[in-house]
Design a protein around this nucleic acid. Structure first.
Lengths: 193, 193
DNA sequence: CTATCGATGTCAGTGCCTGTCATCAACGTA
DNA sequence: TACGTTGATGACAGGCACTGACATCGATAG
């Protein structure tokens, strides 16, 4: 006989998403989330450091993916090309997950405190990318700047992706955004995409 | 006879900074801040939406400055040059404020929740810069990308500025960082600055 | 069989933040 | 002068996020 149902973390995540969608983030208490998952509030905080974090599990795997892609890039690749490779890997990872991403992003978009958490996750991502570039011998501040550029491209392409009516391809959107960034930093006059 | 001492907001800010430096952000309660300023906790929350915000007043003026600089740039200037003009304006604004900036940044660096707030202020800054560029006729996503690039340059140069031993010039650091960003997005091989 | 372990529950408490109502000097107006 | 209004503040009650300390009890190792 099992003393506890398995996968507490997953149950808490699912219960949280359901409640956030049903009645909104603010109108949902941690006790309610835990209750729906068959647990107590105290246990929620053993699985997640705070209420927001329940929406941001999985950021760790994205980080690993990106670091590996940068590390695996050809040794003679320019920093920006290593970043491009990381973006490609991200594109593949999100393939087919647009509906879920959109749902989650709608919740985040409605709550500044969740946007804050998302931004610091992005900053950590940029930090990890910069570390991976430095490990390739890219000096600062070029490594930091390339990493920041990469996350900027990701964020802007991602935003377009979840908002798009058609089911565009995230990878393609990121490639286009990267090309735009290259053009704009090169001092090109405005153009439309 | 005055019923209340003037400049409640400023007194709260000063009391907060003092206490944060004396005993740390976490070890300071809002009631203590208010008490030192001769006010009550409830009044604190009439001046600031939350405890963190007491450290981030003034972000509004930075935003205005940047928007005006972009708007005032020559009509035929490329987006990236309008951004460069905004960075110059920022450099002038922070001239001579390095010690204060460093003190404040030390507090923020020690507390993730404060970093989150700083990041969302940066995101708002980027949003305002993008709006100003769009008003100049720059289409999306170029406007967003140029704005994000600008804030990335600002953040990285600012970090170096407050950490530097010598009293380097923020404006010069931003110009150098912008040049590095241009080089790295152009696909240049790694170089050191 | 017993000791330890690990996930959970229980409970008390702190601090952030909000809603609501009261206070009272200043100010305008009749 | 009297009186109503305004605006910044105080007082108070309460909700909810989050934490520390201790108890519980199947599972597992020896």
């Amino acid at each position: 006989m099992v003393r506890w149902e398995p996968n507490s973390t997953g149950r808490l995540q699912q219960a949280a998403m359901e409640l956030f969608v049903e009645r909104g983030y603010d109108q949902t208490t941690v006790a309610e989330i835990a209750g729906r998952a068959g647990l107590t509030e105290r246990t929620f905080f053993r699985h997640f450091t705070d209420k927001r974090e329940v929406l941001f599990l999985g950021a760790e795997s994205l980080l690993d993916l990106v670091v590996k892609a940068i590390t695996a890039a050809p040794g003679d690749a320019a920093p920006i090309d290593a970043i491009a490779a990381a973006l490609d890997a991200i594109g593949t990872m999100f393939d087919g997950r647009r509906d879920g991403s959109r749902l989650r992003q709608n919740v985040i978009a409605a709550h500044p405190e969740l946007q804050e958490r998302e931004l610091i996750k992005m900053a950590k991502l940029a930090g990890a990318m910069a570390d991976a570039l430095r490990a390739r011998g890219v000096p600062d501040p070029s490594a930091s700047l390339a990493a920041e550029a990469g996350t900027a491209v990701f964020r802007i392409a991602f935003e377009r992706w979840v908002q798009a009516d058609s089911d565009a391809d995230l990878g393609a959107l990121m490639q286009a955004a990267l090309a735009d960034l290259k053009a704009v930093t090169a001092g090109s006059p405005p153009r439309s995409t």
